[in-house]
């Protein structure tokens, strides 16, 4: 069973993640102002995280015949962008916990947290610039164009989701959710790390579009899984508050399913609940939303969607990687698909 294969995945994930984080720290200036900037920049990357993004980038590069060092700077940039997103996400969501510890906004306040996130975005540019000496101008340009698309898609997806909450939109469809997830999560979590890894390894010869479906299906399955863990996982394993998404009114697949399945009076009540600012919501109402999700089997529906997408991702794995020689990294990439969708659920 997958226990053994997950040990293999976890081991290599840890190796690649450690390498990326260790390198990432080298890009944090050892200068003033330390206390409220550079020391805090290392806060989130220093916490235990899965490190999917750098691992996917480096492993794909190696699977396509490249080396760790070729992809390392790009992997670090992606990880820095990711951590910047997390810092700003926590501000936007008013979250208290991240990766088992207090969020920067909870501990230092919103202004400092926002500035630290800004700094991380800026710091991510340097490793991409340093690609020039190792990869040459053409590949540096290609990686920049990939990163530009990645970051823009992510903020557009985030804007969609924030807009839904801001307007208290209760008429969303599954298609809306899938589109938002592609933009907010999939491009930068899976698709672009893989595209960049393969492009670097092959000097731009590999067709990066081969990863689009693979990455989208896997990323969407992963996101739905993450949203499920938020509601029915264990805090110690998940690292964030359980049920936080209901408190936030986040438009997850479960909530959208519930809104589209519930009776008119229930939907009206849900609309009212979602219109209340987070700080004014109460535990009883949150519990009631949870019960309604059980009543309409929203968890089961979301789990089924996640499984279907994961199955499609596995199939697409063979399109993206099937023709490559069998290596440890190809094996890792195959098993990480299962690991990402099976983790602790």
């Amino acid at each position: 069973m997958p226990v053994k294969s997950y040990d293999f995945v976890k081991g290599l994930l840890e190796d690649y993640n450690s390498l990326a984080i260790k390198t990432l720290f080298r890009y944090i200036p050892e200068l003033e102002p330390r206390k409220y900037l550079y020391e805090l920049v290392s806060s989130y990357p220093g916490r235990p995280g899965k490190g999917f993004r750098p691992a996917l980038c480096i492993a794909t590069c190696k699977a396509f015949g490249g080396t760790e060092s070729m992809a390392l700077r790009s992997a670090v940039a992606i990880e820095l962008f990711h951590n910047a997103f997390l810092v700003h996400d926590d501000v936007e969501d008013d979250s208290d916990f991240r990766r088992g510890d207090k969020t920067l906004n909870a501990e230092y306040g919103i202004p400092i947290a926002v500035n630290v996130g800004d700094a991380m975005n800026v710091l991510s540019i340097r490793p991409l610039m340093e690609n020039l000496s190792l990869l040459g101008p053409e590949m540096t340009w290609i990686v920049f164009t990939e990163i530009e698309h990645m970051v823009r898609q992510c903020v557009e997806g985030q804007a969609m989701e924030l807009g839904w909450v801001h307007e208290n939109d209760t008429g969303l469809t599954e298609e809306d959710y899938l589109r938002m997830t592609l933009k907010k999560t999939c491009w930068y979590t899976i698709i672009h790390p893989c595209r960049i890894g393969a492009l670097i390894a092959t000097s731009g010869e590999a067709d990066p579009d081969r990863f689009n479906r693979f990455g989208y299906y896997l990323g969407a399955a992963f996101q739905i899984q993450d949203d499920l863990l938020n509601l029915i996982g264990e805090k110690e394993k998940y690292g964030k508050e359980i049920g936080g998404d209901i408190w936030e009114g986040k438009r997850t697949m479960m909530l959208i399913h519930l809104l589209n399945s519930s009776e008119p009076d229930e939907k009206q009540w849900l609309g009212h609940f979602l219109s209340i600012p987070r700080r004014h919501r109460n535990p009883e109402d949150v519990e009631n939303v949870y019960r309604l999700m059980i009543k309409y089997d929203s968890f089961g529906y979301a789990r089924s969607c996640s499984r279907n997408l994961a199955g499609a991702a596995l199939k697409e794995f063979f399109t993206a990687y099937g023709a490559l020689p069998d290596t440890r990294d190809k094996e890792f990439l195959y098993r990480i698909v299962l690991y990402m969708i099976e983790r602790d659920l």
């Binding site: 899938l178 689009n212 997408l309 499609a312």
Partner: peptide, 11 residues
């Protein structure tokens, strides 16, 4: 799966 078809179309 319908959800996969939908995702492919969006992509």
């Amino acid at each position: 799966s319908r959800v996969v078809q939908q995702a492919a179309s969006i992509l």
